[in-house]
Design a protein around this nucleic acid. Structure first.
Lengths: 73, 73
DNA sequence: TCAGATTAGGGTAATTGGGGAT
DNA sequence: GGTGTCCCAATTACCCTAATCT
């Protein structure tokens, strides 16, 4: 039991670690880092320099891939 | 100048526990403590030695470390 | 005062960042 | 052009017990 939604003074976004995102996409964590560096995905840095990713954004991006996106902008 | 509107921590400031800050950054509470020790984030100690963090400072820090993707089609 | 949950403190493993080469 | 793997250094996560907070 760890599902106790507390700490929501203003509806914060759920964040994911690079490893978690990498697992979702079936890629190497380094690749996720490259996506962030290339600006293809938004990222939040910890004061220590590690990255965190928005779960909603990741899910959206994941859904687009599943739906065969015509990424021709 | 006699009064500074909002530019100073006057009296009441919403304080957050290490656990709450940890949730916002998606890190371990111990990591937040480490940030305080390293001086990366300001902290207030309770008489018992526990740490409390200013909500405004945490929010500001979180905002500054956020890199949003401006994919404004 | 009691009870439950959180935090501090120290120590050790795992993850991550950055660069560079394949 | 994009991805996976190598290196090393830094940051973070999990282990424990005792003290503090609510």
């Amino acid at each position: 039991m760890t599902v106790t939604p507390q700490t929501r003074p203003n509806s914060q976004e759920q964040l994911l670690t690079p490893g978690e995102v990498a697992t979702l996409f079936r890629v190497d964590p380094k690749t996720v880092t490259r996506w962030a560096t290339a600006g293809r995905i938004g990222s939040i840095r910890t004061p220590g320099g590690h990255r965190r990713f928005r779960e909603s954004e990741v899910k959206t991006l994941l859904a687009e891939l599943t739906n065969d996106v015509s990424h021709t902008a």
